[in-house]
Design a protein around this nucleic acid. Structure first.
Ligand SMILES: [Mn+2]
Ligand SMILES: [Mn+2]
Ligand SMILES: [Mn+2]
Ligand SMILES: [Mn+2]
Lengths: 232, 232
DNA sequence: TCCAAAAATTAGCCTGCGCTAACCTTAAAT
DNA sequence: ATTTAAGGTTAGCGCAGGCTAATTTTTGGA
């Protein structure tokens, strides 16, 4: 099991740059491109701020290129992104397992703490927490993406099929309201459910959890990944 | 048991100011005055930087007064200092108990993490860790100073008396070398020892730990507080 | 093909928090 | 009493990382 055998001798980026890097990593992985305007929304800064930060990041070799489709992380940038994502996820597990923090509250807390974890501490955490492959929301550690093979967005599940929720996407974690809603409805990794109706013209679908029914908009449903064909 | 029933509605200071506050709190408590030059040494910044930071801190009502004996924390300042000290100490315990980090490494790690702990998390930590009254080095939580009553500096123990090490002072924690040395020699809270010789003209004293003897300079020895009269 | 909307950039501003160099002030020590 | 050392302050600088306002570039749709 390769942990990307990190040399990691480059100096660590500032917390701000670490936050840019981790968001850009996921953007590039799941959307194929990095759009500064989206980044600005997700990081809650003005577009102009992103432009300026990109300049410093290019100077410091975390990224290359400019403009619409031109921005990409360098190898060093990707390594730094992987590092902070690992620290984020390990912190989330520590909060969940040791301090019993509910999973709709771990993300924000972890976003502050992640920048303060030393490499030695990261290693101690990984050992204490049993070398997890996904975060408490089911998102894969960098390098462990294979474990999510076979998990599909809830929007692609045919009506009537029973599935198990496995993953709430990183970008859904950014919305505490959505996350709280999902947790309150009992929609979290491990939950069994079944799609009972889809209304494409309405961009909604309805699922059953036990006795309860919940209607979700497509954008939210696309953030939920489920495992199909649970039983043989 | 009063936790200083914190209203704590003031916005939290920046990490830099939090570090100033916690050091100033201990200075005022144990030395009676705040000397900017000492602060500069302990925080590893230039004296001019302290002067400028003091200005902002006065503007923001964390402190009042200027000059040699004039600087004091406000009530708000003391409350903010207490808050970050609590977070620091709880973080140290988490590192020690959950992640098995040795106590000569907890301080530096905690100094980064302490600024990233939310009030809710602080509360979860206190519960999980059993509401401790002292940090792993034996320093008291703000408000719990009474537990250190009866602990005296090692320099005040007469030759021949058996004592138990209870506390390594906050300001010794700032020196990783000293802390590592002490831990390697087995000098840590709980250790039994005996003063076997004092050489005041040499500013050293020698203690026995099991079979081993260790000679300490007075400045280091003054940072060690011990419990006398252990047995009746 | 052209145009409007979306995205990106530049200019100019601000604060926090570092630094050095120079200069005061205060407190000891001779 | 005077001098020296310790402590403190001011001035002037730099960088990170925010902002708004104005402008330019891209791009997808009519
Ligand atoms: Mn973060
Ligand atoms: Mn997560
Ligand atoms: Mn700190
Ligand atoms: Mn401590």
């Amino acid at each position: 099991m390769p942990h990307t055998g990190k040399p990691e001798n480059q100096p660590r980026p500032t917390p701000t740059v670490e936050d840019y890097l981790m968001t850009m990593y996921v953007m590039e992985r799941d959307y194929g491109e990095i759009i500064a305007a989206r980044l600005a929304e997700m990081l809650n800064v003005a577009p102009a701020t992103v432009a300026m930060t990109f300049r410093r990041m290019e100077r410091d070799q975390w990224l290359t290129g400019k403009g619409r489709h031109g921005v990409h992380l360098t190898e060093t940038g990707r390594a730094a992104a992987s590092s902070v994502i690992r620290r984020h996820m390990l912190t989330e597990w520590l909060l969940v397992k040791v301090l019993k923090v509910p999973i709709h509250k771990t993300h924000d807390e972890a976003h502050n703490i992640e920048h303060a974890i030393s490499p030695e501490l990261e290693e101690r955490m990984r050992e204490s927490l049993g070398d997890p492959q996904v975060c408490p929301h089911g998102n894969p550690f960098p390098g462990a993406e294979e474990v999510t093979r076979g998990w599909v967005p809830l929007t692609e599940v045919p009506v009537g099929e029973k599935v198990v929720v496995r993953r709430i996407h990183e970008f859904a974690e950014n919305s505490p309201e959505l996350l709280t809603f999902l947790v309150e409805q009992g929609i979290l990794p491990g939950s069994q459910t079944e799609v009972i109706e889809t209304l494409p013209f309405n961009q909604t679908l309805t699922i059953r959890l036990g006795e309860k029914q919940v209607t979700l908009g497509y954008p939210a449903a696309r953030f939920l990944f489920v495992e199909r064909a649970v039983s043989a």
